[in-house]
Write a protein that binds this DNA or RNA. Structure first.
Lengths: 118, 118
DNA sequence: CCAATTGTTCAATGACTTTTGAACTAAGGA
DNA sequence: TCCTTAGTTCAAAAGTCATTGAACAATTGG
């Protein structure tokens, strides 16, 4: 029940860039970064897409090596692979997250003022 | 005869990332960065793709705001839009170029030992 | 056990992307 | 003027990607 992840040295720059070049996935990464350290489950991102579609995008992020997913019961706890990404592509993740933070055009997680259980 | 370029504030992060997420285009950007300051014409990149296909990829880079193309006679002189990219997305271009520089899997410009007129 | 919750897989569809060759334009040199 | 050089445009063919709904699996709580 462990999901397939690339090892750090299998992470490919063009694939990471292509995967981040989608507004939904970039919004996921931005939100993960804003809650860094806190593993989030998929349902946190339901503002961004349907459950099915989310599954697709989260798989893309995981397969690219951008995120890690840990299976815990019926949930998948998702975290950014910051350590591995920083090792492979120093500064890349930080600059992407900083730029994404400024981006008004990107879809938002948690705009629906339900920040009860943050 | 001036080609259409986005203004600096029209440059979009997801579009830039998506455009860089293609090995041919990333190789173009890497080569442009390695010759920074020197405007290159399209034919310098013929190692990477056919003339037609290059025209397509160079248009993508230009339309995304990654490169600037100046029409000089029958040539287009291509440069990186480093100033604008650095302003909009600080650190992004540098980290991408550094990471691309390490990437053995990326196609190469000038591998055919014809570095006569570098 | 039953039902709800959490998320995946599958097949289908529509939409974009990449690549190609043939035909073209525009400038420059002989 | 004619030819070459540099690059574009067009339409077609392939391929890839995103999105959907229906069906499925696994865990947890009552």
């Amino acid at each position: 029940m462990t999901l397939p992840h690339p090892t750090a040295d299998q992470i490919s720059l063009p694939i990471v860039l292509a995967v981040l070049g989608d507004p939904t996935r970039l919004a996921i990464v931005r939100y993960l970064a804003s809650k860094e350290g806190v593993p989030l489950n998929c349902s946190k991102f339901l503002d961004l897409a349907s459950k099915t579609n989310l599954s697709y995008h989260l798989a893309k992020l995981r397969e690219a090596g951008v995120t890690r997913a840990e299976v815990v019961g019926t949930s998948r706890l998702i975290t950014l692979r910051r350590d591995d990404l920083d090792k492979r592509f120093p500064g890349l993740l930080d600059s992407v997250i900083a730029a994404a933070g400024e981006d008004k055009a990107l879809p938002m997680v948690g705009t629906a003022d339900s920040e009860i259980d943050a």
